[in-house]
Design a protein around this nucleic acid. Structure first.
Lengths: 243, 243
DNA sequence: AACGCCTTTTGGTATGACCAAACTAAAAGT
DNA sequence: ACTTTTAGTTTGGTCATACCAAAAGGCGTT
């Protein structure tokens, strides 16, 4: 009952799982396997593809690391059509290994500063009316949350998030999610206080004011000051070495 | 009551394998398993960890998707200490699924334009003498390669690569590698010609001139024109719809 | 030292089995 | 009639074993 003739071109010792991966991949993107639906049972797949469960499991593992299915320990894999957040999430597992020392964190933080400098400049030059509305609303939420550090953290992230949405490129919000999930958790919450919140609120306000003035240079400078100050505060608090 | 909210998507379902992964992970980062060295044989690992080969193989598969080892079909996995290129490499497999339609490609291309606009601006403002030397050399290579489209492609990539190195953040060159490996292969080579090469060389020269003039706005504009024109050429050539 | 030959090692795959958790549906209780 | 219990059935996670072909290593010849 074994159809071993399914040898594709170049029967190179390539993994049989790759064929299964490719097939399921096609079924997922074509919608034949619907999003959010569970994958067929392993024993069914092994019959469907004429291979052993070993291969099926390896294929599912690959699909999982590709972000095409979502696996939980004892549950059926769930089909998931990939999006930009998926990519960043997949990166996260690897990124973690690069943040073990201060250098790694600094590099990532610097890249964020670089990114957001460009973002605020872009915002100052080409933010639409809706964007301005969103920014003002985010800033207002920011101000109201000053007494509550946890809430302020959320509004802080949200304010920056608006900046990432202004270019209307879905990649950018995903990057933002990456930064906040990789960079912040280590210290961002613990060293907040109403006083710090006030400082950050003022910084945000300065950024928004510059955007309203349509002044890219001022916006960039305000953003830079904001993030540099935040880094400096973290650096001193944790007694990291000099720059 | 255990909190099983870890909805890791790049994660595999095997919990026993996770222990092995964690252990090997630690051995890799601690240098106990040296970089570029082969992993112990599977049968040895299964004795070392007291588990079945199933679990060991699953762990290796996961390490592979984490970028901590490099696997070739019939060969011993090679230990690879993670770096920024590793992250991008891990992303690549997922990214591929987002580039199936024009929208996905456009989003990625736009993000590249956004990134490089910021890069040339940064270069114009803070390029060092060495950077200028590198840029001039890259441009010269560019010019010499105009008759040879394949060679020109390499020098083209190299020229942009210099821009990514100027901020001296190792994340940026990795991003550049991502862009070139994900974005270009689909069309970049095939629609080159000495005439196009000439055009691109001139565009590069304009960028460098603006950088030499320490004029961020001019540099940004030159870069934007360069990349927008390249996109437009691709768009028309492939008869993609309007913007 | 380079090449070809032979033995061992090792990764890829197939089977079959077992367990515990998840699922399902019938049975019991309200 | 509806919720809760419960018993039976799937199904994922793991183990053990076996076989094959390709890689690795040893060895003698050139």
């Amino acid at each position: 009952m074994e159809n071993r003739t399914s040898v594709e071109i170049g029967n190179d010792a390539g993994r049989a799982a790759d064929n299964v991966v490719a097939a399921l991949e096609a079924q997922i993107v074509s919608g034949q396997l619907k999003n959010k639906a569970p994958l067929p049972a392993e024993r069914e797949l092994m019959e469907q593809f004429g291979t052993s469960r070993t291969v099926i499991r390896e294929a599912i593992s690959k699909l999982s690391s590709l972000g095409l299915v979502e696996t939980r320990p004892r549950f059926r894999p769930i089909v998931r059509k990939p999006d930009y957040a998926t990519v960043l999430h997949a990166c996260g597992n690897v990124v973690q290994h690069l943040l073990t020392d201060k250098t790694g964190i600094k590099n990532l933080y610097d890249s964020r500063v670089f990114m957001e400098r460009a973002l605020v400049r872009d915002a100052a030059m080409s933010a639409r009316k809706e964007d301005i509305v969103d920014l003002k609303a985010a800033l207002e939420n920011n101000r109201n949350a000053i007494p509550d550090s946890l809430e302020f953290y959320k509004t802080d992230v949200a304010f920056h998030g608006v900046l990432y949405r202004i270019p209307r490129n879905p990649i950018f919000p995903a990057i933002h999610e990456g930064y906040t999930s990789w960079l912040a958790p280590q210290w961002d919450q613990m060293l907040r206080s109403p006083e710090r919140n006030e400082v950050n609120y003022i910084a945000h306000k300065a950024i928004l004011d510059a955007i309203l003035e349509r002044d890219p240079a001022a916006a960039e400078e305000a953003l830079t000051n904001h993030l540099k100050a935040a880094w400096e505060f973290v650096r001193v608090t944790f007694d990291w070495g000099e720059e």
